[in-house]
Design a protein around this nucleic acid. Structure first.
Lengths: 363, 363
DNA sequence: TTGTAAGCGTTATCAG
DNA sequence: CTGATAACGCTTACAA
C-alpha cells in the first residue's frame, strides 16, 4: 500500500508496453496467452489494481450509476459519538409503540434492484442521501462521478436536478410525470387500488367502504384515491369526492385515525387504506377497541412492506414491485445512454393484489 | 448533455484561468468575491459539473469508499425480464409461511450507517454485491475507484481481499479477528448473550434453560454460545458443551426446531436462541402446538431485527447496533487513511438487551 | 488574488 | 499481436 503500482510498473515487470497491460484487462482476446500470463503474474506480484479514476477519465465513462434518496430517518449526521464495548451490557424495557419502522425497507429494496441491474451491465452503484434543502452532496459527490443518475422523486431540489440533467441522464422513480424532461418509473397506483376496491366490493359483497388516505399533497395518495373511486364507480356505488380521513402515511397516525373512527360511531364495513403503515395503525386501533378484523371490519393496505405480513391478521394489500422499480430505472438509464435523443420515457410497473387474512380471503 | 463543458469552457466564459475555476470549487476563500460570482454564473450558464474521474485522478484520492456485502437473496441476476403494466391487475392468495424476510434489513442498516458517516466526511459510498465465488466485480468495479473498502466478513474471497488490501485499506465487519492484517468491527456477542442468559436465570429464576443455535461454522453463533455458557456458569449452573439444537439462522428452520422440541417431550422452561429469526420460528411452532409464551416457555433472540418487534408476543432480544457498525467501520477506515502505520484495530460495539413480552418482562 | 504548467494513470488511435 | 503517443479534465505547486 506504500508505493501504489501503476501500469508502468506492471509493464516493466512483465516486459511489455503499458498498452498491452491495458489490453490484458480490457480485451484479453487480442493478446497472446503467453503475454497474458506474464502480465497476470506481474499484476499478482505487484498487487496491482487499475485506477478507476484514470480509467474513467481516459475512457470517458464512469462505469457507475448514481442513486439518491431522501433522508427518511432525518438523522442529519448528529453528534455521532461512536461508543465502544467496555463495561456491563445495558438492559432496558422496550415497550411497544416506540419504534416506527421507516421507509428504509422501500429504499433498501429499490437499492438492491438497482444494484442487481447495474451489476448485470458491469456498472457500479454509488449512493447518496440528499440531506436538507441544498442537496449539495449530490452535486459535489455524485453527479460528476457517474454516467447517469436514478433518484426517488422529490429528493433533489428541482433546480439542481435540472443542472445535473444537462450533463447526465436522470431517471426519476415514483414521481408524477410533471411534463419534465426526465425519464420516469412508477407503479400502477390507480389500477392497483381499483382492483383492490373491486375485490372488496365484488368478492366480499361490501358496499359500505371508506378510504383512509395519506397526505393531500402526495401524488401516490392522489392516484390511489382515484383508483378507489374508479373501483366504486365501476360497481355502481357513489364515490366520495374526498377520503374519509387523511393521515401522514405513518403507523402512528394510522392508530389515531383508527381511534377516531371508533369514537365517531359505526365504523364502515371496509376500510381501504392508502398505504400499509396506515392500515397497520388502523388495525392496531380497531383491535384495541375490541373490533374483529375481518369479521367486523375489513382492512386493506398498499405497498406490500414486510410489516404487512407480520401483523395478525396479516394485511391484504397491493404489492409494489420495489426491486423491479430499481431494475427498470437502471434499464431505462442504459437505454437513454445508448440513445440520448429518445423521447422521455415513462414506465409504469404492474402491481399485485395480495389477498390475506385482513379481508377474510384466508382464515 | 451534448458537448459536456469542462473547466476550460467555464474559464473562457468567465474570463479567468482554469486554476481559478478549480479554486472556486475547492478553496473559495482564496478567490475574490467578484471572480467567484463570474465563475458561478458561467457554471450555471454552461451547466458545468466537475468531472469526478479527472478530479480524483489529479487529487490522488477517489473521495469515495466502497461497501461490499454478500448476495443474501441469491438472485444471481436471473433472466430479468422487466414487465410493464398493461392489462388487468393480478390478484393472488398469499398464504403465510411463504416469505422469508432476508438479511436485507441488516445490510440496509449497515449501509445507512456507512453512508451517514461517509457523508459527514464528504465521501461518497459505492456499493457492490459479491456474487458467486470469483467476486471479480469487487476487483473490477470497486477496488480501483475507492479510497478504502468496508466489507462484511466472508463476503470477498480471501485471496482477492488480500490483493486489494495491498492497495487500499480494508475494514471487515462482523468477522472474527483471524489474526489478519485488516481492521475489524464487531459486536459484543459474548457479553450480550451472557447478559441475556443471566437475565433469564436471575430475574426470571429459571434454571432449565437451553440454547438453540445456528450453523456450527458461524463465528457469531460460536461467540453467542460462549456467552450463554458463561451466563450459566456465573449462576452456578452446569453448562452444556454443545447447543441443544442447531438451525441455519432462518425462521423456517426455527419452526422445524420448535416442532422437534415439542415432539421430543418436555420443552425447557426457557429457550435462548442464537438469533431472532430462529427465535421467531421457534415461537411460531410452540404457539401452534398450544404452548403459551412466556407462561409455559420463555423465548429470547439476538439481533433486534424489525420482525422481532412485530411478533406476538414480541421477542425479548439482544439488539446489535447495526447502523453504528457501518459508522464505526467508516470511522476506522478514515483513521487508517490518516495513519497507515497504525496497528490493526478491532472495535467491538456494545449491544443492548431489549426486554419485551416473550420473556415475561412486559405483559 | 490569479495564472502557468506539470503531472495524475489510464484508454485509444495508429503504425508496425 | 504489440508498441508509441496523444488525449482525458482536473489539482497543485510555483510564479507573478
Amino acid at each position: 500500500m506504500q508505493k501504489v503500482p501503476t501500469v508502468y510498473d506492471v509493464a516493466a515487470l512483465a516486459g511489455v508496453s503499458i498498452a498491452t497491460v491495458s489490453r490484458v484487462f480490457r480485451k484479453p482476446h487480442e493478446v497472446s496467452q503467453a503475454t497474458q500470463d506474464r502480465v497476470h503474474a506481474a499484476v499478482l506480484d505487484l498487487g496491482y489494481v487499475p485506477s478507476g479514476s484514470a480509467r474513467s477519465l481516459a475512457a470517458r465513462r464512469a462505469g457507475a450509476i448514481g442513486l439518491c434518496f431522501p433522508d427518511f430517518d432525518g438523522i442529519d449526521g448528529g453528534p455521532a459519538p461512536i461508543a465502544y464495548a467496555d463495561g456491563p451490557v445495558d438492559a432496558q424495557l422496550d415497550p411497544p409503540e416506540g419504534v416506527e419502522p421507516s421507509g428504509d425497507l422501500y429504499i433498501s429494496e429499490v437499492m438492491l434492484g438497482t444494484e442487481l441491474e447495474a451489476w448485470r451491465h458491469g456498472m457500479a452503484v454509488t449512493i447518496a442521501v440528499a440531506r436538507g434543502e441544498r442537496g449539495t452532496e449530490i452535486f459535489d459527490n455524485l453527479a460528476g462521478r457517474v454516467d447517469g443518475m436514478v433518484t426517488l422523486s422529490r429528493t433533489v431540489p428541482e433546480r439542481l436536478l435540472a443542472h445535473i440533467a444537462r450533463r447526465i441522464p436522470v431517471v426519476v422513480i415514483a414521481g408524477p410525470r410533471a411534463g419534465d424532461e426526465y425519464d420516469h418509473i412508477g407503479t400502477d397506483n390507480v389500477a392497483g387500488m381499483q382492483a383492490m376496491t373491486k375485490h372488496v366490493v365484488d368478492v366480499h359483497g361490501i358496499r359500505d367502504v371508506a378510504f383512509v388516505g395519506g397526505p393531500a399533497d402526495s401524488p401516490d395518495d392522489h392516484d390511489r384515491f382515484e383508483g378507489f373511486r374508479a373501483g366504486l364507480l365501476a360497481a355502481g356505488i357513489v364515490a366520495p369526492p374526498e377520503p374519509l380521513l387523511r393521515g401522514d402515511f405513518t403507523r402512528g397516525h394510522g392508530r389515531i385515525l383508527g381511534r377516531r373512527l371508533v369514537e365517531a360511531g359505526p365504523v364502515p364495513r371496509a376500510l381501504v387504506c392508502s398505504n400499509d403503515q396506515t392500515a397497520l395503525g388502523v388495525l392496531d386501533a380497531l383491535l384495541a377497541a375490541g373490533l374483529r378484523v375481518p369479521d367486523d371490519v375489513i382492512i386493506t393496505g398498499f405497498d406490500g412492506i414486510d410489516a404487512s405480513e407480520m401483523s395478525r391478521p396479516r394485511i391484504t394489500t397491493v404489492r409494489q414491485p420495489m426491486r423491479e422499480l430499481g431494475r427498470a430505472a437502471v434499464d431505462t438509464l442504459l437505454c437513454r445512454l445508448g440513445d440520448p435523443l429518445m423521447p422521455p420515457q415513462t414506465r409504469t410497473l404492474p402491481v399485485t393484489v395480495l389477498l390475506r387474512e385482513s379481508c377474510g380471503c384466508l382464515a
